[in-house]
Design a protein around this nucleic acid. Sequence first.
RNA 1: GCCGAUGUAGCUCAGUUGGUCAGAGCAGCUGAUUUGUAAUCUGCAGGUCGGGGGUUCGAAUCCCUUCAUCGGCUCCA
Length: 646
Amino acid sequence: MIKITFPDGSAREYNKGISSLDVAELISPRLAKEVYAATVNGEIWDLMRPINSDATLKLHKWEDAEAKHAFWHSSAHLMAEALESLYPGMKFGIGPAIENGFYYDVDPGNDKVITEDDLQTIENKMKELAAMNLTYSRRDISKKEALDFFSKKGDEYKTELISELTDGTITLYTQGNFTDLCKGPHLPSTAPLKAIKLLSVAGAYWRGNENRKMLTRIYGITFPKQKLLDEYLVFLEEAKRRDHRRIGKELELFTFSPKVGMGLPLWLPRGSDIRQNLITFLTKELRKRGYKIVTTPHIGNVNLYKTSGHFEKYGADSFQPISTPQEGEQFMLKPMNCPHHCEIYNATPHSYKDLPYRMAEFGTVYRYEQSGELHGLTRVRSFTQDDAHHFCRPDQLREEFKSIIDLILYIFKILNFNNFTAQVSLRDPANKQKYIGSDENWEKAERDIIEAAAEKNLETTVVIGEAAFYGPKLDFMVKDAIGRKWQLGTIQVDYNLPERFELTYNGNDNQKHRPVMIHRTIFGSMERFVAVLIENTAGKFPLWLAPEKAVILPISEKFNDYAGKVLEILNNSDICTLIDDRSEKIGKKIRDNELKKIPYLLIIGEKEVENESIAVRKQGEGDKGSMKVSEFVNFINSEIKKEIAF
RNA sequence: GCCGAUGUAGCUCAGUUGGUCAGAGCAGCUGAUUUGUAAUCUGCAGGUCGGGGGUUCGAAUCCCUUCAUCGGCUCCA
């Protein structure tokens, strides 16, 4: 007998070799139907795998990520089986479960192409196979056997993977006629794979290496119930409706023109107002916190970037230097603001008493992003960073870093950004040539970041190898409507540029000392931030950000005169207001302006003219009763104050 | 940059296998209506079917090329 301990601490005895599924079955047959994987002694296992010694056991139902993982991983194998039967000779790369579903990378052969038109056929085949209730069986195998098996099959991708594995750790899984290299875990059988949907097909480099062959990646998702799949598909549709590219067009916020150039956003008046409202707000906040605002040109001499090291690192992949009629002069569109800011620092002498020097600029930069990478406002070739550089003494670094974390959290809170994650990005110690600067400085900077985040009780994930080439960083990430992750704010420690630009300050010992530099953004860029804001709010911006606060709707043309007077009063009171004096019925005007997401609709008819008032309707909420115009002015101002005063 | 797909009026989309196929709704402009909380009615105008080239008696439809967009990959100072 062996003892199995459950998560609640209770324990029971079972026969040696019992499977997790049998344990579930003994607890309740219904539970057995709902579990998809198990964690045995901290390791995720197949339900069928025999437990041969005392163990802790947690059974995973659909709600658990572990269950979904096994479910989708088994689905990937099922898809592979379907593909193999439909396309004999197809070769297989890898086919993992992902956050939402699974994919498989396949090589259909040189003259074959799989397109979205083929997905239905593959899907049907999967359904057919799933209904056969095939069992997934696990087999330990030696490296040699594994290599023999897959080279016989002609699957060079699998043999490549196996050749890098250690002997004794290799397992195969088989269901039906399909056998795959896999460490599992899997479902007991294909029976639970009831609702199947293949979503898209895309290209993906083998092993993520752009120099290697491009395979075909097929994405799909499965659920144990059709209802869950239907809900997921509805969710995807809704997400598409929140896409900032779509809303940006509908609400006339921004556009792109092939004539101007791809990835170069054109801000329309309404989008520009939102952007400007953000800038005004943040500028005010920065001044309160001791920042100095500076302005620098959009280009800089090539030598500036040679000094900074950016030219060597990124010169070849940038917009190429601009030549002038004068021989030998070359300028670059500025890809970042830091070198300019270093030279501003150098323009005046600094005492240790004056540090930290916090220098901020809404600086527009230009980066040559690959054409296939451009994406709405989130990935563009020209964008405005809410950039700042803190020049401080080494002993101030920790506090300075923490104050920036505070600022970012404060701004996110005002904007109701709750779903961000914080990521500490460190260098890859195995790949030091990618970075510049001494080991000592790197280690110190990494320590400072980790400790500052910890002192601020910030929950972070640590990612090795994601650091900037000059220093480690703390990034704030958010997800867009359809789950893609974007980096917004970032805080980066840099010992390198101060060295290269020979920045100094006078210490209390009257000697020259080297300051440390912190690069930081809060929004990241105005473009990306507004994009995320659009998707967060679905275009219904908070009052203080809305381009127009109100629109006046006269019930008929008879009231246009009075409406015009109200319009003038509101606009003179800095409450940006529109008027809709078309010869339309009031219902139509309300509908049209509701759809424009203007926060307040002010209806004016006979009653309002008589009482010198306005009937206030709040967007999305309906009639709020009538008010005097002056009352409305006060009301709007106090509402705005509530939104941005914390 | 790479793989695949898409590109028809300002917007959303119809246009079977090449042969009155250049259409609809919304938006716009006309005129009528003068309206009380999510779509009043009439009429008009709008596109060399992304651009260029080709096949054909005939191309929105087939082929080539180019530009742009979309989904991924790679990249992201």
